Amino acid sequence: MIHDGRLPMSLAFASLLLTFLVTRTITRLIRAGRGPFHNIGSGGVHIHHVVPGIVLALIGGFLAVGSGEYLVARSIAGVLLGIGAGLVLDEFGMIVHLSDVYWTEQGRISIEATVLATAAVGLAASGFVPFDATPDGHTLDDLVAWSIVLLLDVVMAAITFAKGKVGTGVIGVFIPIVNIVAGIRLARPGSPWARRYYRDKPRRLRRATARAARRDARWKPIRRRFEDTIAGRLVAAPAPMPVAPNPEPRARREVDGARHTWRRERAGSG
């Protein structure tokens, strides 16, 4: 039985996950030329599903803000927000790169963003909300303890993000012990933390690089198989559009040359 206070969040979680899975299934069928599905366009313009996703997310968000304590309205808002978020996150890579990278390596960021968002919403729906228990009505000691825990959670989450562990940082916001462990361990090479604090410590940088290489060798093939299962196989990234040379300088030179020739001929005839 779902608690009434968590029902809207649970509906948002289910809507997000189901929308993403259904959308990926439909796009893969369209790509394979199977089924009754096809791309939607208007006036020769392909309408990506991120467009209705933004509209639904906005409607759901404003409805949630204005619904007050009405459980039915909040539940409807949760469904609309979940559907909209699922459509938007499915094309998150296109938003980041401002290019149609849906089936390319750059587009795999959509899978990562969706997994992180789904994990965060799922944890919130399950009751792992670190900022839910407010200290109102408690003693001063309770207020101090709550503030210290909150501050520690925020600081350790910031350190984890700075160390290049985005996924761990998101999970750690809801389960603080995860960020405490991740914040103590070595940063990933290339992260802001490594650039700032490992610059003059080559030994620590070598350890971080070796640890990251071992981790990637172990988990990257598994992650790749998971992404291929969800998103389909990759295609080569689209080649950048060739930039046409600016004809203006050449045209100006031709005009200047013709003008110079005309002046010489005029001076010679005079």
Score class of each variant (00 low, 15 high):
T114G: 02
D136Y: 13
R108A: 01
G167F: 12
G107I: 08
A133Q: 11
V154Q: 12
G127C: 03
E105P: 00
L140D: 01
K163W: 11
L151P: 01
K165P: 04
L152C: 04
W103N: 10
V155D: 07
D132V: 06
A125I: 06
S110W: 07
K163I: 02
V115H: 04
L123H: 13
F128Y: 14
T104W: 06
V115R: 14
V115Y: 12
G169E: 04
A145K: 08
A157S: 14
A145E: 11
G137Y: 13
D142Q: 06
D153M: 09
D153H: 11
Y102V: 00
K163F: 02
A157M: 13
E105C: 00
T104S: 06
F161V: 11
A124P: 00
I109M: 07
A158E: 05
G169C: 00
T114W: 15
T168I: 06
V166Q: 10
V129Y: 15
D141Q: 12
I159H: 05
I159W: 12
A158F: 15
A157N: 14
R108N: 03
T168L: 05
G167H: 07
I109R: 08
G172A: 08
V154T: 11
R108P: 00
W146Y: 07
P135I: 04
G127E: 02
V155Y: 15
T134L: 12
G172V: 07
P135S: 12
A158C: 07
L151D: 08
G167W: 12
D141M: 04
E105L: 06
K163R: 14
I148N: 02
G122F: 08
E105K: 15
G127F: 06
A120S: 13
V121W: 15
K163N: 03
D153T: 15
P135T: 10
V170T: 05
G169Q: 07
V154G: 03
L150W: 13
P135M: 04
S126E: 03
P130V: 08
D136G: 02
E112G: 01
G127N: 08
P130Q: 10
V121K: 14
F128M: 00
V101R: 11
A133Y: 12
I109D: 01
V144L: 10
V170N: 01
S147C: 02
G169M: 03
L150Y: 13
V170M: 01
L123T: 07
K165I: 01
V101Q: 03
F174L: 09
V149I: 04
V129N: 14
A162L: 12
D132F: 15
G122W: 12
A113V: 00
W146I: 00
L123P: 06
V115T: 12
V155T: 04
G164H: 14
P130K: 09
I148A: 07
L140C: 01
G164T: 08
G164Q: 13
L152P: 01
F174S: 05
T134Q: 13
P130D: 06
G127M: 05
I111N: 08
V154N: 09
Q106G: 01
T114A: 04
V149M: 06
G167S: 06
P135L: 00
D136E: 14
L151M: 10
A117E: 02
F128W: 12
